[in-house]
Structure formats: C-alpha cells, structure tokens
C-alpha cells in the first residue's frame, strides 16, 4: 500500500458515496446512466469472485463495499426511483462494450482459468464502463455539478492508480501489464471531461457543452 493507491481507493469510494447520496437526497437519478451502473455492478461481481483469497482486511472490506454499493445504486435507479430514470437519453449500446471486453479477456489474459478470465474481463470492462454515462452527458449537453464531482472522483481514481503502478514498478519491481494498459485507456477516456471540470465546474459554472 502506498499513498497513491490509498488516495485512489478513497477517491473511488468517495465517488460511489457521492452518487448514492445524490440519488438518495434528491430522490432522483436524473442525468445518471443506469447502463454504466449496471456495467460497474458486472465489473465488481466478476472481479471480486476471488473474495475467498484473503489479501488483507482492508482489501476484503473494500471489495464488499464496492459490490454492495454498486447493487444498491442499480436498485435505486431501476426500482426505487425508476420514475426519475432518464432512459430516453441512456441509449448507449452496451453490447458493443461487453462482448469485445469478454472476447479480449479470452484472448489476452495472465492465465486461462475461469477466475482469471473473469478478472481480466472486469479490468477491460471497467476501462470503458463509463462510456454510457459520458455519452449521456454529451447527448443532453450538460451535467449537474454533483454528477460532475462524481465523475471527477471516479476518473481520478484510476489516474492515481497509474501513479501507484509507476511507484510499485520502481520500488517492488511489480507490474501488471493488463491492468496498466486498461487503466491508461480508462483515464484517457476522462481527459475531455477533466478539462471541462477544471475550466468550468471548479469556477462555479455548470458543466455545459457548447451547442
């Protein structure tokens, strides 16, 4: 554990809490892509099947929180606050993300076993899981500030992991090429959003895309 990973994990946790609180407090999931949230639930489920392999208390606890929170979010969007779900704008074709991620996991993995292929699938899937949400923001041309904070925290987490991987490579000689390449792809997808967040949201303006 190093500072980059710890702050990355906390940023990830913060993102999940921000989203749950936003939906709960406003009793609405307007502007949130249910499809991205389903993809995240799939990501955590397929990645944390290794839960019985004990690494640390911290690790186990965080995994349980991420799985539980992702299902709670999906429940709030598709059941409890279903009436507020903006499905007309949530039209990204997720099969174009799920199928290629799965095929790639079958082809490029560390070990051809069920658990390992599913872990690899979850890494590829996570790198693109935010696309339905970003697509929704670009389609409506705007995002509430709280949604922007959520996206910023979520995007920062993988960027911080990249620093963690550089640190681990130099100090422990440890590296995982699959995670690194997917993590870079994931972070790059947020770059456009990061730019808008820094130039607009942090200056008190609403995140609005030029018409």
């Amino acid at each position: 554990m190093n500072i980059f990973r710890l702050v990355g994990d906390l940023s990830h946790l913060l993102a999940i809490i921000i989203l749950l609180l936003k939906i709960w407090k406003t009793r609405s999931c307007a502007g949130i892509s249910g499809k991205s949230q389903i993809l995240f639930a799939i990501v955590y489920t397929s990645r944390y099947l290794d839960l019985p392999n004990f690494v640390s208390m911290y690790n186990t606890l965080m995994k349980i929180v991420f799985i539980a929170a992702s299902y709670a979010t999906v429940y709030l969007i598709y059941m409890k606050f279903k009436a507020t779900y903006d499905h007309n704008h949530d039209t990204f074709r997720v099969e174009f993300l799920v199928l290629p991620s799965f095929v790639l996991a079958l082809l490029i993995n560390h070990d051809f076993t069920v658990l390992e292929v599913l872990w690899t699938f979850s890494i590829y899937m996570e790198s693109v899981a935010i696309l339905p949400q970003l697509f929704m923001v670009s389609k409506t041309g705007e995002a509430e500030s709280i949604t922007s904070h959520y996206l910023f925290a979520l995007g920062s987490y993988r960027a911080l992991y990249i620093l963690n991987w550089i640190y681990r490579y130099t100090t422990e000689d440890h590296y995982d090429l699959i995670a690194i390449v997917a993590g870079i792809v994931q972070t790059v997808l947020y770059c456009d959003f990061f730019y808008l967040y820094i130039t607009k949201v942090l200056k008190g303006k609403k995140l609005q895309l030029p018409a």
Binding site: H12, D50, N53, H110, D111, E116
Partner: peptide
C-alpha cells in the same frame, strides 16, 4: 504445477 496469479489491488 499450480500457477495462481494474485491480484492484491482493487
């Protein structure tokens, strides 16, 4: 030989 890849990150 059992080769298990360990993933210690989240």
């Amino acid at each position: 030989i059992e080769s298990v890849v360990t993933h210690d990150e989240l």
